[in-house]
């Protein structure tokens, strides 16, 4: 892999096999086996032979309608899902902020969760205790909420904390999936600021967002995914334009059809 690439994706396909049974239980499995039935399943191709190179220091926006496979792609780059076919090569330390937020345990305080999240992502205890205050400060939760259980948080507070954790890991590659949607205007400004700073430090950022302005504002390249395939790649403005047209018209532009 060339040295200037942060991520190389080769002919990547990811399929989910979904059970159509109401509940996957041992009991049902035994019943099925005794009746010689097969489990009813459906295969969903979430990503279809996608090829993409992401150079170091680029900020890539990913747009596409619901179910296009954006989150699936992000999970695969993070090493959480493994490919069904193809290959993903990643060069650098990854930090993820995926749709569900960092793995927060709702019964624990924000501070405890920061520590756990940091340790899970591979920091050691010294590194994370240095960072905890910094993260808490950046998230700027009101009224000492940082020491209350996460279950008492509003979704925006939750989002703030997740974002603060993800950007504090000084990642080489930062994956953000719908990360900026929950914060209020003030926090959005602050997080944009922080992301620009990360961009300036030549870190690689992948942003999935339905807020298309985020993509045009922050990204230097964008891709558009549709039903698991890459439809187009190019300048954010052009991609967003094409995507908006598609949303209004409802069909893929003919020039994209064979891609």
């Amino acid at each position: 892999m060339p040295n200037d690439l942060a991520i190389r994706i080769e002919e990547l396909s990811i399929t989910y096999k979904v059970s159509l049974e109401a509940k996957r239980t041992l009991k049902n499995a035994v019943m099925r086996a005794s009746l010689k039935q097969k489990e009813r399943t459906r295969t969903i191709e979430a990503v279809k032979s996608l090829t993409l190179d992401v150079p170091h220091g680029s900020v890539l926006g990913i747009v596409g309608s619901n179910g296009a496979g954006k989150s699936t792609l992000m999970r695969c780059i993070a090493g959480i899902l493994s490919p069904t076919e193809g290959r993903v090569i990643v060069n650098g330390k990854i930090s993820t902020l995926l749709a569900l937020g960092v793995g927060f345990n709702p019964a624990l305080s924000g501070r405890d969760n920061i520590i756990l999240g940091g340790l899970a992502s591979g920091l050691n205890m010294d590194e994370i205790s240095d960072k905890t205050d910094e993260i808490a400060e950046f998230a700027a939760l009101p009224d000492g909420f940082i020491d209350l259980p996460v279950r008492t948080y509003s979704s925006g507070m939750y989002g703030r904390l997740s974002f603060a954790v993800a950007v504090s890991m000084t990642p080489d590659i930062l994956l953000l999936d719908e990360a900026l949607s929950a914060g209020d205007a003030a926090f959005k400004e602050k997080s944009f600021e922080r992301m620009r700073q990360l961009c300036a430090e030549a870190r690689t950022i992948l942003i999935v967002s339905h807020a298309l302005a985020t993509v045009t504002d922050l990204c230097d390249t964008a891709i558009w995914m549709h039903k698991g395939s890459l439809v187009a790649k190019g300048k954010p403005e052009e991609i967003v334009d094409g995507y908006l047209k598609f949303l209004n018209v409802g069909s893929l532009p003919s020039s994209y059809e064979d891609m």
Binding site: M1, N3, H56, G57, C76, I77, G79, S82, P83, T84, E85, G86, R87, V88, I89, V90, N91, G92, K93, E134, T170, D172, Q197, A200, E201, A202, R203
Partner: peptide, 18 residues
């Protein structure tokens, strides 16, 4: 704390395959 230009980059290649 301001961070240095990505000089803490340590090449760490990970390959994810089926």
């Amino acid at each position: 704390t301001p961070m240095p230009v990505n000089e803490d980059f340590v090449p760490k290649i990970q390959v994810f395959e089926p």
